[in-house]
Amino acid sequence: MLDKKKVKLGIAPIGWTNDDMPDLGKENTFEQCVSEMALAGFTGSEIGGKYPKDKEVLKKALELRGIEICNCWFSTFLLTKPYEEVEEEFLKQARFLKDMGARVIGVSEQSYSIQGKDVPVFEEKYVMDDGEWNTLTEGLNRLGRAAKEIGMTLTYHHHMGTVIQTEEEIDRFMQSVDPEAVFLLFDSGHCSFAGISPVKIFEKYTERTRHIHLKDLRLDVVKRAKAEKWSFLQGVRNGTFTVPGDGDVDFEPIFNLIESKGYEGYVVVEAEQDPALANPLEYALKARKYIAEKTGL
């Protein structure tokens, strides 16, 4: 059983509205989203595109429902934009998150990313050369140190279709960045989708993990995605991902590692699906029930 004093449970709004494909969940409002999060028993949320930009408006809406902000996605373009430009936007987002009570900011390098493009996700991924590796890791080290100065922690989100996707890339990345400045955002679904054992990665880097995405995967859909050369987003539309307990990822070893290695922080259900096919409240309740049964949270 997990210690509620150490581990908090959140959910991402991407199950209600998808910022990468705005037609998915366009009918779902911010108020409906956070109300249903609370109704399902979650106390943490990441920030989505429909969330109010005004801190006071957002705080009031969340306080009414007993929810706090725990993270937000931030796209870096360290390979294709001047560092100073990236840092300015990064610190703006980090300060907003800190004001909302969050402790981490989730970063993903989006230079050359194909996650939003209509190309086969398993065949068109960009591979960095040594110079680009240095540019990326040094840039992230600088951002991580800047985040520390304002009391925030940079966590890096490995992601399908991006420059950090494979097991080899995750390992090289973790060996290259400053362990005091850059930490891991571990995602069970993106590991599984990339053909990596999520348990292997998490066991190796638990001590350097500061945020967790609990995402399940339907292997039969992944098989079709490979055979039919689907893009990442086409896979999402067709049900690649689902909530924990509804797919093929074995979460028990992950939960055991969270407990045995003393992880402290948020675990966040993040499972993008078409809300017209997977009712967000229904699946949030399903995830909440499964996690409660397995962890006691």
Rank of each mutant, 00 (worst) to 15 (best):
D19N: 09
Y266P: 00
R65Y: 11
V104I: 11
E132W: 00
Y156T: 02
D250M: 15
K204F: 14
T240A: 15
A146Q: 08
T43F: 08
C191K: 00
G116L: 09
L281H: 04
G239V: 10
E264M: 07
Q115R: 13
E167S: 11
L24V: 04
T242W: 07
A94G: 03
V107I: 13
K98H: 09
K226G: 05
G189W: 00
I14A: 02
H211W: 02
P280K: 01
M37G: 00
E85A: 15
I14S: 01
G44C: 03
K286V: 07
H190M: 05
S45D: 03
Y83R: 09
I201S: 00
T242L: 14
D19I: 05
V269C: 09
I258R: 03
Q175I: 11
V199E: 03
D216L: 02
K60A: 10
Y112R: 15
F173S: 09
G245N: 09
E169T: 12
T29S: 14
A181H: 02
C33V: 05
A181M: 11
S35N: 12
M128P: 02
G139S: 12
I291W: 00
H190P: 00
T295V: 15
T135Y: 05
I164H: 11
V163T: 09
V243W: 02
Y112N: 15
A147L: 03
D23I: 07
F232P: 00
E132M: 05
D246S: 15
F186P: 01
S231R: 07
S113P: 04
E124P: 04
N279Y: 14
V249E: 05
G44K: 02
D19H: 07
K98Y: 04
N238Q: 14
L9E: 05
D129M: 10
F251D: 03
A292L: 15
G10P: 02
Q110D: 13
A61R: 05
K294S: 10
I11H: 03
P198K: 01
L9S: 07
G131E: 14
E132G: 01
M128W: 04
G106E: 05
K26L: 11
V57Q: 15
Y112Q: 12
R288Y: 05
H211Y: 14
S231Q: 08
P82I: 06
A38R: 02
D216F: 01
E270D: 12
G245C: 10
P244Q: 07
F173H: 13
L24S: 04
A40R: 03
E293P: 05
V221L: 02
W16T: 00
